Amino acid sequence: MARRCEICGKQPQVNNNVSHANNKTKKRSLPNLKSQELTVNGLTKRVKICTSCIRTLNKVS
């Protein structure tokens, strides 16, 4: 399974590490994904969602 939130679609980003000498090297920023069980239409399903979506779901329910 890809490193992508199944609710909002958040995925890895490509950034630069910038040194004091202004040298730039590529790095990846990964989303903070957690595996959680959600109940949808009476069925329990395990999904990978980001922590910001978990906080939003806790606020709504």
Rank of each mutant, 00 (worst) to 15 (best):
I54F: 04
P12Y: 08
G9S: 04
L33N: 03
I54C: 13
N58E: 15
I7F: 08
N58V: 08
N23Y: 12
V40G: 01
K59G: 10
I54R: 09
N16R: 10
K34T: 12
P12W: 09
N16K: 09
G9P: 02
E37Y: 04
V47M: 11
N22G: 03
V60K: 13
I49H: 02
R4E: 07
K10S: 04
I49M: 00
L30W: 04
N15S: 10
C53W: 10
P31D: 04
N22Q: 05
E6C: 03
S35L: 13
T39C: 13
Q13S: 13
L57T: 05
M1P: 09
V40N: 04
L43G: 01
N58P: 00
V40H: 06
N17M: 06
N16W: 13
S35I: 09
A2M: 02
C53S: 11
N41E: 14
V14K: 13
L33K: 05
H20T: 06
K24L: 06
L43K: 15
P12N: 12
K10G: 01
R4S: 06
V14H: 07
L57H: 08
S61P: 01
P12K: 12
K10L: 10
N32R: 09
N41A: 14
R28M: 06
C50L: 05
Q36N: 06
S61H: 09
N15H: 15
V14S: 13
R4Q: 12
Q36V: 15
I7K: 03
C8M: 05
C8F: 02
N32T: 00
T44S: 15
C50A: 01
C5L: 03
T25M: 06
K59T: 14
E37P: 08
S35M: 13
E6R: 02
G9I: 00
N41P: 00
S29C: 02
S29H: 09
T51R: 08
R46T: 15
N32D: 10
S29F: 03
S19V: 04
S61N: 14
N32E: 02
K26N: 05
K45W: 10
K27S: 05
N23K: 09
R28Y: 06
K59L: 06
N23M: 05
K10M: 02
V14D: 10
K34Q: 14
K45I: 15
A21T: 13
V14Y: 10
T44V: 15
L57A: 11
I54M: 12
N22L: 13
K24Q: 11
K24S: 09
L38N: 07
N17K: 08
S52L: 10
L30H: 03
N58L: 15
Q11M: 13
E6D: 01
Q36T: 11
S29Y: 11
R3H: 07
E6S: 01
P31R: 00
V40W: 08
I7G: 01
C50G: 05
N58C: 12
H20V: 06
R46E: 15
S19E: 06
R4N: 02
M1G: 14
I49V: 11
C53Q: 02
E6K: 00
K24M: 10
R55T: 10
L33G: 03
L30G: 01
I54E: 11
I7Y: 07
N15P: 00
C8N: 03
A2F: 07
I54Y: 02
L43M: 14
L38I: 14
V47Y: 00
C8T: 07
N15Y: 14
N16T: 09
V60P: 00
